[in-house]
Design a protein around this nucleic acid. Structure first.
Length: 477
RNA sequence: GCCGAGGUGACAGAGUGGCUAAUGUGGCCGCCUGCAGAGCGGUUUUCCGGGAGUUCGAAUCUUCCCCUCGGCACCA
């Protein structure tokens, strides 16, 4: 079976063939840190995290680089508004971002370069572009990319036409007076005294928005990438500018073989925006929902589709997730009571089929939605086998091992799989067990009133008691 | 204006030429249970935006129409 991915460059699903056999160089545009990250960021980085994890699962040697843009006009503007130092602001939100990603179980990139630590490289790259006649400095200390040298490349990713752009952009964007051509984009921007800046051959200034990704991806990945990812909103102009800059610098085409873009996240069917007042930060949502549910919710829609967020949908996802988690806990209880021998009652075959269908779904452009649907089918069958038969321990452990195998990709079952009923504040496991023992005695005596009272009491303390065929089980809610 | 995505059961959301159109949530019924929970089974009447076409066969391809959403020079 071959992995197939949707390539924005060709607008088609293609076989995935890296430049270098099993080696994959992957670069994903990171955030501009001028505020806490929102759910849209979560969507994007969870998607690419999943893609990265799946590539590893399929045996690729992945180098994953994702930047942090820590100097930018938005940061400067926000710093001015709040009277803070721009660097203090950006480092604060960088930490916040990393905190959020850790919470969401997004694996850290192999390299996470910051723009402010790469100013010399950026200046060097711009110098080369000027040397090649692809960029020009102006008397005001700005440097622009000369788009008239690459008009044939405009729209290569975005499918925009020069005419369309000229028509559309004029009304919305103030044209910088020192630009030669209206569509030229800035590589280096001069800074005023009060703005952060670095010395350069063109005077004190800072990098333009697109150049940093070109520079850092080439430095830490390769001159030609296998995968370049980011949100769909970055297709134009950001990624197209990156293509022009990078290819202009290296002379190699294509800059990236595959361009992958995740779809938007909307709130109640509207774009998330501050003016609409429907702006959700990751931190805010984490206050109400566990991270694995947020992850499940996001993976429960194909990464390219628009995903519509609402509390209701997240609650629904929580219930669906619970179903999976219950299956895992059913398996564990079965293991605790399983005979050493006795056969697998078809479990091993189910595992084999589940693995095949997982790979089949994921191979088709990372169809996590279908993969999860298959997993629910698997889950139902396992539950049925467990409740009707008594498969032996080895078979049950095989099921658990499979779930933890695919969780290397999904990253949602960690808590349920790895920890036994985790220690919580209040009561120790022993104390809980002791109280449950009392209830067992009451049950034996058919004192249902007392038995139910104990169960209710424990529930108030966050302990859920369930009576099963094999005996009592309990968990912390 | 230009570019793009999409309209599938109560809701969410896969499927993109061919068995009774996944899966989850919700509703209803049943099994199990002292009860509850979890789980399992069943069920939720014509669910594929509309018309025309291609085809033995279309949610899936072509075409027209209607509607929704997004991008358009520093938003993941």
């Amino acid at each position: 079976m071959v992995l197939r991915v949707y390539n924005t460059l060709t607008r088609q699903i293609e076989d995935f063939v890296p430049l270098n056999d099993k080696k994959v160089n992957m670069y994903v545009c990171g955030p501009t840190v001028y505020d806490h990250c929102h759910l849209g960021h979560a969507r994007s980085y969870i998607s690419f995290d999943m893609i990265r994890r799946y590539l590893v699962y399929r045996g690729y040697d992945v180098r994953y680089v994702s930047n942090i843009t820590d100097v930018d006009d938005k940061i400067i503007a926000r710093a001015k508004e709040t009277g803070r130092d721009p660097f203090e602001l950006s480092s604060r939100f960088t930490l916040s971002f990393i905190e959020d990603m850790d919470a969401l179980n997004v694996l850290r990139p192999d390299v996470q370069p910051r723009v402010t630590e790469h100013i010399p490289e950026i200046i060097g790259t711009i110098q080369v572009l000027i040397g090649r006649g692809l960029a020009y400095p102006t008397s005001r200390g700005n440097v622009y990319y000369d788009l008239t040298r690459s008009l044939d490349r405009v729209g290569i990713l975005s499918r925009q036409t020069v005419e369309g752009l000229l028509e559309g952009s004029g009304s919305r964007v103030e044209v910088e007076e020192d630009k030669r051509y209206r569509l030229d984009f800035v590589l280096w921007k001069s800074s005023s005294e009060s703005e952060p800046g670095w010395d350069s051959p063109w005077g004190r200034g800072r990098p333009g928005w697109h150049i940093e990704c070109s520079v850092m991806s080439m430095k830490y990945c390769a001159q030609q990438l296998d995968i370049h990812g980011g949100g769909a909103d970055l297709i134009f102009p950001h990624h197209e500018a990156e293509i022009l800059q990078s290819e202009g610098y290296t002379g190699l085409r294509p800059f990236s073989r595959y361009w992958l873009h995740n779809g938007f996240l909307t709130i109640d069917n509207e774009k998330m925006s501050k003016s609409l007042g429907n702006f959700f930060t990751i931190k805010k949502v984490l206050e109400e929902f566990p991270p694995e549910v947020i992850r499940f919710f996001i993976l429960n829609t194909h990464y390219r589709s628009t995903i519509n967020f609402s509390e209701q949908h997240l609650e629904e996802a929580g219930r669906a997730y619970e179903r999976m988690a219950n299956t895992i806990s059913n398996i564990r209880y079965a293991i605790a009571n399983a005979p050493g021998k006795g056969g697998d009652f078809g479990l091993l075959e189910e595992v084999g089929q589940a693995r095949d269908s997982f790979i089949m779904s994921m191979d088709e452009d990372f169809n996590t939605r279908e993969a999860l649907a298959n997993l629910f089918v698997f889950s139902r069958r396992v539950n049925a086998i467990i409740s009707e038969n008594s498969p032996d321990r080895a078979a049950l452990e095989e099921v658990l091992a499979f779930l933890s195998e695919i969780d290397e990709v999904l990253g949602i079952f960690g808590k349920v799989l790895e920890t036994h009923e985790e220690a919580a504040e209040g009561m120790s496991d022993g104390e809980v067990e002791a109280i449950i023992q009392q209830r067992e005695e009451a049950r034996k005596a058919r004192d249902w009133a007392r038995s139910d009272a104990i169960r209710d009491e424990l529930k108030e303390k966050g302990i859920i008691v369930e009576d099963g065929k094999e005996g009592v089980r309990w968990k912390r809610s």
